[in-house]
Design a protein around this nucleic acid. Sequence first.
DNA 1: TCCTACGATGGACGCAGTCCAAGTCAAGAA
DNA 2: TTCTTGACTTGGACTGCGTCCATCGTAGGA
Lengths: 136, 136
Amino acid sequence: MSDLLQRLRGRGWRMTSQRRVVAEVLDGDHVHLTADEVHARAARLLPEISRATVYNTLGELVSLGEVMEVSTDGRAKRYDPNAHRPHQHLVCSGCGTVRDVHPTGDPLADLPAEERFGFAVSEAEVTYRGLCPSCA
Amino acid sequence: MSDLLQRLRGRGWRMTSQRRVVAEVLDGDHVHLTADEVHARAARLLPEISRATVYNTLGELVSLGEVMEVSTDGRAKRYDPNAHRPHQHLVCSGCGTVRDVHPTGDPLADLPAEERFGFAVSEAEVTYRGLCPSCA
DNA sequence: TCCTACGATGGACGCAGTCCAAGTCAAGAA
DNA sequence: TTCTTGACTTGGACTGCGTCCATCGTAGGA
């Protein structure tokens, strides 16, 4: 059983086959899937799983901090299982694929106090855009 | 007549009352309105304007580079009339309001070649998140 | 003034996501 | 092991945001 499932059990999750399958799909390869893609992959393992359950489970994983929600364009949100190591995203303007990247430097340091307008700024999200090798 | 309308006319736009009104709404105060908000304000000036027209006009303004599309959360896109001076956005996690900010430093410089994975990276979008004074 | 191609209209449609009432079942209690 | 119960799942309806399309209207050149 994966680390993820163990952590979830430790947090008092009732372990159902649906939740196990969703966690397994996310844990698999570190791609950034949409909810529908997660549903499609989960359904290959557990044909009767419903969309609502996938949405519920993803939402719980996000609020537990186990998964990151990424909205790169105005379309479907993507789910990033790599929530424990801070990182930013590189998005292909052609095909929409998303890669994790680890820039040097802290964008928060680039925002001087007089540009914060009294906000309590807590995080900076950076999205790099460009064309991936196959789209270029 | 505003600069915006003059530029549009110079680009061969057919000047209709609908387009004039949408441009006027965006040119007004530099808030970041959703398409629906633009429609509502436009309808105060021209009651019969349709949603489709507002969406079309906003789309054209974006592709002409006169307006920026900002999607801060997974919900409705917002339209930023300040497209000529490069800037980033500061979003309140409480109420969702968006402010333009001008950070020092270039986030592109923080992404080393070995983190670009062969992508032709052309831009970096930074979203700062935090609580605004009234939400804190 | 007339013509016509570009733009506006509004209603249907599609996708992403949420909600809800009813049914199911994981896991602790006995 | 079986019972019990409340947490979880289901699927279908619904909402919000955005797009599409056939038809109608009109800006602006001839």
